[in-house]
């Protein structure tokens, strides 16, 4: 299958998955295109469209939680950032994705424990 077609398929499938979770594709179309392209390549190489911004360890239990969209497995952390780690998805009310920062899991957990 050609890459462009697969990219569109992923886009269609994944938008249905993230919608009920309150997320949408980022409005940064250039970023979205780039990330989906990476996922198509990763899928060809590794069999699944893993997150382009998180590392695989080779342990199935760990790695399966990084298949896009990985929001269900990192919900609280991503909700706090209003975006997923790689920024492919943002909360539905976000219009300016550039304003959203990456907050590491460690920082997130520390700030959570303070509250």
């Amino acid at each position: 299958m050609d890459d462009e077609k697969r990219k569109e398929q992923l886009r269609t499938m994944f938008s249905k998955v993230v919608d009920p979770l309150g997320y949408k594709f980022s409005t940064d179309e250039e970023l979205v295109e780039f990330l989906l392209e990476q996922e198509v390549n990763i899928e060809k190489e590794k069999g699944s469209p893993f997150c382009p911004c998180q590392g695989l360890t080779g342990e199935r239990e760990h790695d399966m939680k990084l298949v896009c969209p990985c929001i269900p497995f990192h919900r609280e952390h991503y909700d706090a950032m209003k975006r997923c780690w790689c920024g492919l998805y943002v909360h539905k009310d976000v219009d300016d994705p550039d304003s959203l920062m990456q907050i590491s899991l460690k920082e997130f957990l520390e700030s959570k424990n303070k509250d």
């Binding site: 998955v17 009920p20 979770l21 929001i71 269900p72 497995f73 919900r75």
Partner: peptide, 8 residues
């Protein structure tokens, strides 16, 4: 229900 996010 999807066990990790029941909206799905």
């Amino acid at each position: 229900k999807f066990l990790d996010a029941e909206e799905i």
